Amino acid sequence: MSALRTIGALTAREMLKFVRDRSRVLGALAQPLALWLLLGLGFQNTFQPPQGSVGGSYGAFLLPGILALVLLFTAIFSTISIVEERTSGFLQAVLVAPTPRTALVFGTTLGGTLLATVQALLFLGALPLIDLSPGVAGVGMIVAVCLLTGLAFTALGFAIAWRMETTRGFHAVMNLFLLPLWFLSGAMFPVDGAAPVLQVVMWGNPVSYAVSGLRHGFHGFAGTPAALAGPGVCLAVTGAFAVLMTGLAVWQVRRPFFQT
C-alpha cells in the first residue's frame, strides 16, 4: 500500500508540474507540429507514396512518425527533472522514505507516459486534413502503441537521467540515443528506399515497429504503407521494448551511486 500511494503521489506530481509549466506544452507540441507542416507541405508534390497505400500525401505518411516525436520530446521534458531534483534535495527525500525505490521509477514513468500519450493523441484532430479515418479499432491501436512507446521513452530517459549530474550532459546523451532512434525508424522515409546498411539498422530498431504500429492504426489496418510487420508483431516488439527499458530503469535505481 505504501508503494502504491507513492506511485500515485508521484504520478499526480508529474501532472501538476506539467500544468504549472506551460512551456513544456509548447516545446513538446510546437516543434513536431511545425516539422509536420513544413515537411508535409514541402514534399507534397514530390513524395511518391508506397504502392497501394491509403492517404497518399506525405503529410499522411509522416504523421505516425510525428506522434513518435511528440512522445520522445515529452520523455525528455519529463525525466530531465530527475537531474534537477537531485540538486534541490527532493530526490534524496524520496530515497530515504520508507517505500521501495521501484515506486519512484513507476510513479515518474507512469506520469510521463500519460502526459506523452495525451499530447500525442491531440494530433488525431488533424486526421480530417489528410483524409484518414482509422475507426474504433484503429484508434485503439494508436492509443496502445502510444502508451507503450511513451513508457519506453520515459523509462529510458529516467535510466539516463539517474546517473547524470548536469542537465547539459543529460541533453547530450538523450540526443545521442533518442534522435537516431527516431530518424532511423521509418518516420521520415520508408525502409525500402533506404541504403542497405540503413535498412539493417531500421529493421533492428524497436522504434521502427512502434511507428509501423501507428501506421496500422491510422490506416485502419488496410492499405498500410511502409509497415515493417503486422499489427500483432508491432505491438509485441513495442511492448517488449517498454518492458526492457522499464527493467533498465529499475536496475539503475537499485544500483548504489558509489561503488568500491
Rank of each mutant, 00 (worst) to 15 (best):
150 G>L: 06
192 D>V: 05
85 E>P: 11
69 L>W: 14
165 E>H: 12
64 P>G: 03
173 V>L: 15
162 W>G: 00
144 A>G: 03
113 T>I: 05
72 L>N: 07
163 R>I: 10
124 L>C: 13
115 L>Y: 03
138 G>Q: 02
98 P>M: 05
159 A>F: 11
83 V>R: 07
123 F>D: 03
94 V>I: 13
152 A>P: 00
112 G>R: 01
61 F>R: 08
96 V>W: 03
120 A>C: 11
62 L>C: 09
163 R>Q: 14
114 L>T: 10
163 R>Y: 14
169 G>N: 11
71 L>F: 01
117 T>M: 12
69 L>T: 09
154 T>W: 04
188 M>F: 15
154 T>D: 05
152 A>Y: 00
63 L>F: 04
119 Q>C: 00
111 G>Y: 03
176 L>W: 00
119 Q>M: 11
170 F>T: 12
101 R>V: 00
95 L>K: 12
174 M>L: 11
144 A>T: 12
76 I>H: 02
89 G>V: 10
110 L>Y: 08
184 L>R: 02
105 V>H: 11
77 F>E: 12
78 S>F: 04
111 G>N: 07
124 L>N: 07
179 L>V: 15
95 L>M: 15
184 L>T: 12
126 A>R: 04
169 G>A: 06
118 V>M: 10
66 I>H: 02
88 S>N: 10
148 L>K: 04
99 T>E: 12
193 G>H: 07
184 L>N: 05
171 H>I: 13
110 L>D: 09
82 I>S: 01
96 V>T: 13
61 F>D: 07
122 L>M: 14
94 V>L: 15
125 G>E: 07
168 R>L: 14
70 V>N: 06
191 V>I: 03
73 F>R: 07
68 A>W: 04
71 L>E: 03
150 G>C: 09
150 G>V: 08
137 A>I: 10
95 L>V: 14
113 T>D: 08
135 G>Q: 02
111 G>S: 09
70 V>E: 04
155 A>N: 05
88 S>V: 00
83 V>A: 04
105 V>R: 06
184 L>M: 14
102 T>K: 11
70 V>M: 09
68 A>I: 09
